[in-house]
Simulated scan of single mutants.
Amino acid sequence: MATIDGPRVQAKSGKPRQLVVFLHGYGADGADLIEIGRQWRAFLPDADFVAPHAPDRCAASPMGRQWFPLTMRDTEERWRGCVAAKPTLDAFLDAELAKRGFDDSALALVGFSQGTMMALHTGLRRNRPPRAILGYSGILVTGPGHAGEAPSPYEKPPAILLAHGEEDEVIPVEALMMSANALAEQGVPAQWHLSAHIGHGIDETGLVHGGLFLAQSFGVKVAFARR
């Protein structure tokens, strides 16, 4: 099993109480998202941020990484890819939590595109649920015929926010409601945010909404959130 790591931003307070893990998209790497952690320090001063590089080099972008291959020629490749990559991500999360003496109640997963697929797939199958899952521009991956390995039946599932650009040309915006509806069928409620005039990316409004969502999920008070 591969070992992964990536760039980090330490808690602004110097005393971490939460861990936020960014999962980048296909063909990128951890450096693509870690800057968001610097921006969110204002919302989450007690959070450590880490953005591991996915385990494999990306065939379509040799300088980037991938959680699993994507050819779009196989309707089941996303499912097989998530299943195959989950143990590596689980091991990383377990090690990062143990290093800080945290359990999953102090963990939030933030994904973009393929990273959102991994965040939802892995986060909903942990032995204990993370506190929150935030997915940008992604989709909930389901098994063949919506069968396969089922998510863990949590008594209290993680808080989930799905955000998407209404003009996304890579993963169409319809994926947002498809994912939210599929989660509802599994008894997992999800909030959602639609970014107007945005393609496959994250705008400033989406970033602020996501940061406030994580703060609320962790019970952190943000003064200007009441405006």
Rank of each mutant, 00 (worst) to 15 (best):
Val188Tyr: 10
His209Pro: 00
Leu194Gln: 10
Arg17Thr: 09
Pro7Thr: 03
Ala215Gly: 09
Val170Leu: 13
Gly111Arg: 03
Gly148Phe: 01
Trp79Val: 00
Ala54Cys: 13
Met63Gly: 01
Leu162Thr: 08
Gln191Ala: 15
Leu183His: 12
His200Lys: 05
Glu77Met: 11
Gly143Gln: 06
Leu134Tyr: 12
Ala42Thr: 13
Tyr26Ser: 11
Gly101Tyr: 05
Leu134Cys: 11
Val110Trp: 09
Arg100Gln: 02
Pro151Lys: 05
Arg100Val: 01
Trp79Phe: 15
Asp29Pro: 02
Gly148Tyr: 07
Met178Ser: 04
Ala163Trp: 06
Met72Val: 05
Gly201Met: 07
Val21Asn: 06
Gly6Gln: 07
Glu149Tyr: 00
Val188Ser: 08
His209Trp: 01
Phe49Glu: 03
Met72Thr: 03
Arg73Tyr: 00
Gly27Cys: 09
Gly14Val: 07
Ala132Trp: 09
Leu161Gly: 08
Lys221Pro: 01
Ala95His: 02
Gln191Glu: 15
Arg131Met: 04
Gly25Ala: 11
Ser137Val: 13
Glu166Gln: 14
Leu107Phe: 04
Ile160Arg: 01
Ala95Val: 02
Gly135Ile: 04
Thr205Asp: 15
Pro130Ala: 04
Lys15Pro: 00
Thr142Lys: 03
Met178Gly: 03
Gly143Ile: 07
Val222Ile: 09
Phe68Lys: 04
Ala215Arg: 02
Gly148Pro: 08
Thr142His: 01
Ala84His: 10
Ala85Tyr: 01
Ala215His: 07
Thr71Phe: 09
Gly14Thr: 09
Pro62Arg: 02
Val188Met: 08
Ala108Arg: 10
Phe218Gln: 00
Arg100His: 06
Arg126Ile: 12
Leu140Ile: 05
Asn127Cys: 05
Lys12His: 14
Leu44Phe: 14
Pro157Lys: 04
Ser179Ala: 11
Ala60Phe: 14
His146Gly: 03
Asp203Arg: 06
Met178Ala: 04
Ala31Lys: 09
Gly6Arg: 00
Val9Met: 08
Val222Arg: 08
Gly6Trp: 01
Asp46Trp: 13
Gly27Arg: 09
Gly206Trp: 10
Gly199Arg: 06
Gln114Gly: 01
Asp74Met: 02
Ala28Leu: 11
Lys156Val: 12
Ala42Leu: 14
Leu97Tyr: 05
Glu35Arg: 14
Pro87Leu: 05
Asp48Glu: 14
Arg17Leu: 15
Arg65Gln: 11
Glu76Cys: 08
Ser195Ile: 13
Leu212Phe: 00
Gln216Trp: 01
Val173His: 13
Tyr154Glu: 03
His200Gln: 03
Gly165Ile: 12
Phe112Trp: 09
Gln191Arg: 14
Asp46Met: 10
Gln66Ile: 04
Gln191Ile: 01
Ala132Met: 06
Asp94Glu: 15
Phe22Gly: 02
Thr205Pro: 02
Ala215Leu: 06
Ile198Ala: 06
Leu19Val: 09
Glu166Lys: 13
Leu124Phe: 08
Val222Pro: 04
Lys99Glu: 15
Gly148Arg: 02
Pro7Lys: 04
Phe218Leu: 02
Ser113Lys: 06
Gly6Met: 03
Gly138Cys: 10
Gly210Ser: 12
Asp103Ile: 03
Gly201Ser: 11
Glu204Phe: 12
Phe92Lys: 10
